[in-house]
Simulated scan of single mutants.
Amino acid sequence: MAKIISFISRKGGTGKTTNAINLATMLFNLGHKVALIETDTNYTLSTLRKMELFKTGAKDESIFKIIGSEDQKVIDDIKNLDDTVKLDYVIVDSAGKTTDESIRKLCVESDAVIVPTSLTQNDLLVTYQTVEDLKPAKEHNNQLKIIILPNRIHSLTKSKTVKTALEDLEVSILDTIVPAKNLYANFSTILPEKEYLNATKEIIEMI
């Protein structure tokens, strides 16, 4: 059965989409069978994938699927995927707020929920609130891993500084830091970003 990794946050702009696609492309590059579901009805990743297929001439069937869904439909879409294709990982780039019933259900179904955050005061506050919203899901799924992903961190920031800023959250925190670099923001839906390898390996080990 596929491992479900969901990117969730109370607010937009924290890096859910960027990290979801970087994780998916790297997992696929490592030989895993992957599908990515995005629930933002703008379907940014689905549109970008179509553009990349057109420009590169790559065949859609040769790479992992990107599926457009909605928060209230995503559980059914995951189950339908599991019935038709044998996958190793399903990555969910969610759009809804953590207080939405559909997002809470997604947490219960997930093996891991990843919350990206920078170290700005506003993002840290949002991350704390997000984690508090997500913790009750562990009462229904005691195997659920809630993971903080330090994102858009200045390259000179030490790991200890990041850990200290996030330690009050009392959940797992990635040792790997995703720095504030354009190469992560200018992502591909086909080609992996090699610098994302360490983050990917650590996420796999955690779940």
Score class of each variant (00 low, 15 high):
Leu144Asp: 05
Asp100Asn: 12
Leu124Ala: 09
Met51Leu: 05
Glu70Ala: 09
Ile21Lys: 03
Lys59Pro: 01
Leu53Arg: 03
Thr99Glu: 06
Asp76His: 06
Ile190Gln: 08
Leu124Arg: 15
Thr41Asn: 12
Ser159Lys: 02
Ile67Pro: 14
Tyr89Asn: 13
Pro150Glu: 06
Met51Thr: 08
Leu48Arg: 10
Gly13Trp: 12
Ile78Asp: 06
Asn141Asp: 00
Thr47Gln: 14
Asp111Ser: 10
Val178Arg: 13
Asn42Ser: 15
Val108Leu: 07
Val162Trp: 15
Ser155Trp: 07
Asn80Leu: 09
Thr17Ile: 06
Gly13Met: 14
Lys59Ala: 04
Ile91Pro: 00
Met1Thr: 08
Glu202Met: 07
Ile78Met: 14
Ile190Asp: 05
Lys97Glu: 09
Tyr89Ile: 06
Glu61Leu: 01
Asn19Thr: 11
Ser110Arg: 00
Thr157Asn: 12
Ala58Leu: 12
Asp71Thr: 00
Ile37Cys: 11
Lys16Trp: 11
Ile177Asn: 08
Leu87Lys: 02
Glu167Ala: 13
Val108Cys: 08
Ser94Ala: 10
Met206Pro: 10
Leu81Ala: 10
Asp100Val: 02
Asp88Gly: 05
Ile21Asp: 08
Ala180Gly: 09
His140Asn: 15
Asn198Trp: 10
Ile147Met: 12
Leu119Arg: 11
Asp83Met: 09
Thr41Gly: 06
His140Glu: 10
Ile177Gly: 07
Glu202Arg: 05
Pro192Arg: 02
Ile207Pro: 06
Leu45Thr: 05
Ser188Gln: 09
Asp175Leu: 07
Thr98Phe: 08
Leu144Ser: 00
Val162Lys: 07
Lys50Gly: 02
Thr39His: 02
Glu170Ala: 03
Lys158Ile: 01
Ser46Ile: 00
Lys79Tyr: 12
Phe28Ser: 13
Ile190Lys: 15
Thr157Phe: 07
Ser94Cys: 09
Ile21Trp: 06
Leu191Trp: 13
Gln129Gly: 10
Lys145Asp: 00
Glu101Leu: 15
Asn80Asp: 14
Ser110Gln: 02
Phe187Glu: 08
Glu38Tyr: 03
Ser6Lys: 00
Lys65Trp: 04
Phe7Trp: 09
Ile8His: 11
Cys107Pro: 04
Thr200Ile: 11
Leu27Ile: 03
Asn29Ser: 11
Val74Pro: 14
Ala2Asp: 03
Leu166Pro: 03
Thr41Pro: 04
Val74Gly: 13
Cys107Gln: 04
Val90Gln: 05
Ala35Phe: 12
